[in-house]
């Protein structure tokens, strides 16, 4: 049995009076790829933001490598270095080149020396086929390239877990595949990943586990074959049929 990398225990989160997460239990093993599916507002993004400690949770526990990271007052910075987050809207820093976007955090947080910074970054850019785009600014890159730079930026911190928040939703259909390829590559390398996604085809092909979220709860959790071919919950069936229609 693989090591448990991340465990969520009865996680609750509300924004004001609106409950967004209502008791999430989930455990993610090392090297596992978990896909979160569900309609907009089901809590997928909020869950990822909570794991990255961008949002404090109201109740429950988040345990990373057997350390509780949801403890109030805990300094979130060292944890965030280990848990990378990639956003739907890329969120690259527009005033910095792709290379500067990638090296900022390793330089300021990990205090890597210049040479190492450059070598690590070049290696990552080359690996994902962007070595000729390193000195471009975000507005000179296509959406797919921007999102790949954003992924490289997160990877440059050597994270143990990567979170992807609908990273292909803002992309033109023909650019989606180049980003999915990056995810496949990471999966092959054994990265532990949690994805919120609407790419049902990709989830079916690449995920180890798929969780169906509805109103802040995981209503169904299974291997992709099982969940997509033979969902138990009526809500899952309803969601899948509406998604697959398009």
């Amino acid at each position: 049995m693989a090591l448990t990398k991340l465990q969520l225990i009865d996680v609750h989160k509300s924004f004001g009076d609106i409950p967004v997460l209502q008791g999430i239990d989930l455990s993610v093993a090392e090297g596992e790829m978990v896909c979160l599916i569900g309609s907009s507002g089901s809590g997928k993004s909020t869950l990822l933001r909570c794991i990255n400690l961008l949002e404090p949770i109201d109740n429950g526990q988040i345990v990373y490598n057997s350390q509780e990271i949801s403890e109030p007052g805990l300094n979130p910075q060292p944890i965030r270095q280990k848990i990378g987050l990639v956003f739907q809207s890329f969120n690259l820093f527009p005033h910095m080149s792709a290379l500067e976007n990638v090296t900022l955090a390793p330089r300021r947080v990990l205090r890597q020396p210049k040479e190492q910074l450059f070598n690590n970054a070049t290696e990552l850019f080359t690996k994902f086929g962007l070595e000729d785009r390193m000195n471009h600014y975000p507005d000179q890159l296509s959406g797919g390239q921007q999102q790949r730079v954003a992924i490289i930026r997160a990877l440059a911190m050597n994270p143990q877990i990567m979170l992807f928040d609908e990273v292909t939703s803002a992309l033109d259909p023909e650019l989606i595949e180049e980003v999915l390829d990056v995810l496949r590559q990471l999966k092959r390398q054994g990265m532990t990943m949690i994805l919120a996604t609407h790419e049902i085809g990709f989830a079916r092909e690449a995920a180890d586990t798929v969780c169906m979220l509805d109103q802040g709860r995981i209503i169904e959790k299974a291997a992709p074959d099982k969940l997509f071919s033979n969902p138990e919950e009526p809500r899952t069936r309803e969601f899948l049929s509406s998604v697959l229609k398009n």
Binding site: G84, R108, A154
Partner: peptide
């Protein structure tokens, strides 16, 4: 979302302000 991106990378509040928010704001 720019601050969120900075924080998600493990940057401190100060560094996020100094390297990400202020350069864009001042421009």
């Amino acid at each position: 979302s720019q601050r969120a991106a900075g924080h998600s990378l493990g940057l401190s509040h100060g560094d996020t302000m100094r390297y990400i928010v202020l350069p864009q704001a001042l421009r």
